[in-house]
Amino acid sequence: MLLTCIALTGATGFIGSALRPVLERDGHRVRALTRHERGANEATEWIRGDLQDRQALKRLVAGADCVIHCAGAVRGADYETFRAINVTGTREVFEAARSEGCAHLLLLSSLAAREPALSWYARSKREAEQQLDDTGAPGITIFRPPAVYGPGDRELRPLFDTMLRGLMPIAGAPQGHLAVLHVDDLVAAIRAWLETPAIGPGPFELHDGTPDGYTWPQIAAIAARIRRGRVFSLPLPEALLRALAHCNLALARRTGRTPMLTPGKVNELRHPDWRCDNTALATALNWQPTITLERALADPALWRDRGH
């Protein structure tokens, strides 16, 4: 692998925290954006600032061979919260990169961008992709991962813990299909892209190698095999979820919090088809996922925080 200088956003988030040490071990020079002061003895060069700070972004990308944009908002009480980070922030990062002559740009979008009418989050992700498409600039690649999990994840771990104790709450569509991806496989895909960055814009979907995704009964059966005991499914009524989401959103707006459970999030959860296709990315890159959901659930080190 050709060693490069990599500008990284979202380096302290879930995916970025998994990616950054791997890039360092590969021998790359990593320059990462951070809102907080970091130790000077770390291997990464930290640039203090955020996605609204043009001077910080210019320092971030100056002399970089490529930019990997992982930062994004996943919570918010209105569309403008998502737009400011996911749309405007993305544009600022990529405009700074182009102004500094950086030719290889990777945007970590989301499978939700395929269904922009579902939620503020999905709409913002699609708009971020479209504004990059509209520029017509070369060197941009878009990845659309589905639900990503692994050590450091805070969204799926509670579900996994509960399932392996014998109870599986189901907030999604009862007959729905969903895709997942382990963070290590996503990192492997990014490493493969670094070796062959000029693969075209995509967007490229990714999943864990299960072509048809998972149904909730299949997930329950996986958990039952691993715990060697029955797993009881507990479908959550859609009306209850929507009532909770509306209450949560109203409370968040009064308190200034950034909520996760909103009406849009319920729309995402209840969407019946989150299947996706690895074919285009596997053809473009020498990459195949290796961690199925069953393999991960059978090994707590693959989904629980390290040290637990």
Rank of each mutant, 00 (worst) to 15 (best):
I6S: 09
I6F: 14
L19M: 09
H28P: 15
A32I: 12
H36A: 07
E37Q: 14
W46M: 02
D50Q: 04
D53R: 04
R59S: 03
V61Y: 06
G72A: 11
A73R: 13
V74G: 01
E80D: 13
I85W: 13
T88V: 15
E95H: 04
E100W: 09
L105N: 07
L106I: 11
L108Y: 07
L111N: 00
L111R: 01
L118H: 08
T135C: 07
I140G: 06
F143A: 03
P146D: 03
Y149M: 03
G152I: 12
L159H: 11
M163N: 13
L167F: 03
P174D: 08
V180C: 11
L181D: 11
L186G: 00
A189T: 12
T196G: 06
T196D: 06
L206T: 09
W216N: 15
A221Y: 00
I222S: 00
R228Q: 15
F232E: 12
L234Q: 10
L236S: 05
L236V: 14
A239P: 00
L240G: 08
R242G: 07
L249C: 04
G264I: 02
P272S: 05
P272A: 11
T279A: 14
A280I: 07
A280C: 04
L281Y: 02
A284L: 05
N286E: 15
Q288G: 07
Q288N: 11
P289L: 10
L293D: 04
A296P: 05
A296M: 01
L297K: 01
P300E: 01
H308A: 14
